[in-house]
Simulated assay, not measured.
Amino acid sequence: MIEPDRTEWQVRCAFNAFCKRVLKNEAINIYNERRQQQSKEMTFSDLTPQEENQLYTLDKHYEGGEEHSFQVAGMKITSKLLAEALRTLPKEKRITVLLYYFFNMSDVEIAQHFDIPRSTIQYRRTSSFERLKRFLEEHADEWDD
């Protein structure tokens, strides 16, 4: 009876040694892979300005050249003038105008988004439209630059 217990003990020891060897070798492999990966990586602070510039692009569609404008009722409307007109609106009215005209949301959808009555949205939109109209009429000739 002593002999089978001893064999079982030897098998356990051999299996234990095998598992330890596998884990040790796997840890070494992971360490080597990480070291290789770190040797290939570079921090942003180590990049040269030329390499940094290769990481992004800029939309140059409106850069330089002539500014886009259009004539309406004898007035020249530029993108700068239109942007300034929108900036004069209070935040709530500006958001309402942008959601309605540029995101094609209805008054009901905007009202649900802000959890306020639809009539409030309609009032904000129409009063904003009148305010924008007055601003553009008053300042259209001043923004020719």
Rank of each mutant, 00 (worst) to 15 (best):
M1Q: 08
I2V: 08
I2T: 07
I2E: 14
I2R: 13
E3G: 04
E3M: 08
T7E: 15
T7P: 08
E8D: 13
Q10R: 09
N16L: 13
A17L: 11
A17S: 09
K20W: 10
K20M: 12
R21H: 08
R21V: 05
V22D: 10
V22R: 11
V22M: 11
V22F: 10
L23R: 06
K24A: 10
K24V: 08
E26P: 02
E26H: 00
E26Q: 06
E26S: 01
N29H: 08
N29Q: 10
N29W: 06
Y31K: 04
N32R: 06
E33Q: 04
Q36K: 00
K40P: 01
K40W: 01
E41L: 09
M42H: 05
S45T: 14
S45M: 14
S45V: 11
D46V: 00
D46P: 02
L47E: 08
L47Y: 05
L47V: 02
T48S: 15
T48E: 10
P49T: 12
Q50W: 04
E52M: 13
N53D: 13
N53A: 10
L55T: 11
L55H: 09
L55P: 11
Y56N: 09
Y56M: 09
Y56Q: 10
Y56F: 14
T57L: 09
L58R: 13
L58G: 10
L58F: 14
L58W: 12
D59W: 03
K60Q: 14
K60D: 14
K60A: 14
E63H: 15
E63A: 15
G64H: 15
G64N: 15
G65N: 12
E67V: 07
E67I: 11
H68N: 10
F70K: 09
V72T: 02
V72F: 07
G74W: 06
M75N: 03
M75L: 06
K76S: 06
I77N: 03
I77A: 05
T78Y: 06
S79E: 15
S79Q: 13
L81Y: 03
L81G: 03
L82R: 00
E84A: 05
A85Y: 03
A85E: 02
R87M: 15
R87L: 15
T88Y: 02
K91P: 04
K93I: 05
K93W: 05
R94Q: 15
L99M: 12
Y101A: 10
F102C: 13
F102T: 09
F103E: 15
M105G: 01
M105D: 01
M105P: 05
V108P: 03
V108E: 13
E109S: 04
E109W: 05
I110W: 02
H113Q: 07
F114L: 01
I116Q: 00
I116S: 00
S119D: 04
S119Y: 00
I121M: 04
I121C: 01
I121W: 04
R124E: 06
R125M: 02
R125S: 01
T126G: 00
S128K: 04
S128R: 05
F129A: 07
F129W: 07
E130H: 03
E130Y: 05
L132F: 09
R134H: 01
L136V: 10
E137W: 00
D141H: 14
D141G: 11
D141M: 14
W143Y: 14
D144S: 05
